[in-house]
């Protein structure tokens, strides 16, 4: 009987956690891919390679890997001025895209897990919301 109760609660707990789980990373990445194709691709290009001298690469970008918060802030509020990415200095401007915090989390998850990039920590909405100008 004890085993049964234990199993029963385990099942219930699993079901509850499944139902109430936050959106998975995989789903976020998928939505982020659509956001990327909509808002980012015309400058940063399909494989995140960017344009030499104009738009910094996102693929295997050391800046992105080392400056998570600043990267999110850049997407959220726009970015201007000098930026060194993989040894190259860029001095451009990126307009704020007017994305919702959820969309920013999604597109960041897409970027952080594409083209050879990898992040162990998922970007969540709260993290984006907390970042201020």
């Amino acid at each position: 009987m004890k085993t049964f109760i234990f199993l029963y609660f385990t099942c219930v707990l699993t079901a509850v956690s499944q139902l109430y789980q936050e959106p998975t990373l995989e789903e976020s990445i998928q939505r982020g891919g659509e956001i990327y194709a909509n808002f980012c691709v015309s400058c940063h290009l399909e494989k995140g390679e960017g344009v030499e001298g104009a738009f910094p690469p996102l693929a295997k970008s050391d800046y992105l890997a080392q400056n998570r918060e600043a990267s999110i802030r850049g997407v959220k509020f726009g970015q201007q001025g000098e930026l060194v990415v993989n040894g190259q200095t860029y001095n451009g401007i990126m307009a704020p895209m007017g994305l919702e915090d959820e969309e920013i989390a999604d597109v960041m998850n897409y970027i952080l897990n594409s083209w050879g990039n990898h992040s162990d920590r998922m970007v969540r909405i709260e993290e984006v919301t907390a970042i201020e100008k």
Binding site: N38, F39, A95, P96, M97, G98, L99
Partner: peptide
């Protein structure tokens, strides 16, 4: 203005 993406 609807300030989203290329809009403004």
């Amino acid at each position: 203005v609807y300030n989203r993406g290329q809009g403004g």
